[in-house]
Amino acid sequence: EQRVMALYDFQARSPREVTMKKGDVLTLLSSINKDWWKVEAADHQGIVPAVYVRRLAH
């Protein structure tokens, strides 16, 4: 499974989004949309801005 790391803090503004802190490692579920990526963090799935995360090497 692909992982991403948060580059910045992000506060969810809707139930579809995921709140994350800089340095958090999340599971990447989908990167089809270039602006918003779907991730999973602590059993919560949602979207985060793609520019706020970076793919981690396997």
Rank of each mutant, 00 (worst) to 15 (best):
L28G: 03
M5Y: 06
K38T: 15
D24E: 07
A57Y: 15
L7V: 11
D24L: 00
G23D: 11
H44E: 10
V51K: 15
E17C: 01
V53H: 05
S14W: 01
S31E: 15
D43R: 04
A6Q: 00
L28A: 03
V18K: 08
A42N: 15
D9S: 03
Q45S: 13
A12C: 03
F10L: 05
A12E: 06
T19P: 06
Q11L: 06
V48C: 07
D9G: 05
A57S: 14
R54V: 07
D43P: 06
L26T: 07
T27W: 00
L26R: 02
R13S: 11
R13Q: 10
W37H: 13
V4L: 06
L56N: 05
E1L: 07
Y8I: 13
S31Q: 14
R3C: 05
L26I: 04
V39K: 03
W36P: 07
V39C: 03
K21A: 06
D35F: 08
K34E: 07
S14I: 10
S30N: 12
D24A: 03
I32T: 15
K38P: 04
V25M: 08
H44A: 12
A57D: 15
L29I: 10
A41K: 13
K22E: 02
G46Y: 01
T19S: 14
V51G: 14
D35K: 12
A42Y: 11
V25E: 13
A41D: 05
P15T: 10
L29Q: 09
V48I: 06
D9T: 01
H58D: 15
V18I: 12
A57G: 14
E40Q: 14
E17L: 02
F10C: 00
G23S: 12
V4S: 01
H44K: 15
S14F: 07
R3K: 14
D24V: 08
P49E: 01
A50R: 13
D35G: 05
Y52R: 07
A50C: 07
D43F: 02
V48S: 10
Q45T: 15
L28C: 15
T19V: 02
E40R: 14
V4C: 07
Q11C: 09
L7I: 11
R3S: 03
A41L: 11
W36S: 02
V18E: 02
K22R: 10
V25P: 03
P15W: 03
V51L: 12
A41H: 15
K38C: 14
R54M: 07
L28R: 00
L56P: 08
D24H: 05
G46P: 04
Q11A: 09
Q11G: 03
A41G: 14
K21G: 05
A42T: 07
D9M: 01
M20Y: 01
A50I: 12
Y52V: 04
S30Y: 12
T27Y: 11
E1D: 14
M20C: 04
W36K: 05
I47R: 00
D43E: 08
I47E: 03
R13P: 05
P15V: 06
L29T: 10
P49A: 00
L26Q: 08
N33P: 09
R54C: 05
L56W: 00
Q11F: 10
L7Y: 04
K38E: 14
F10M: 00
V39W: 06
V53C: 13
K21I: 02
D9V: 00
R3Q: 10
V51S: 15
E17D: 03
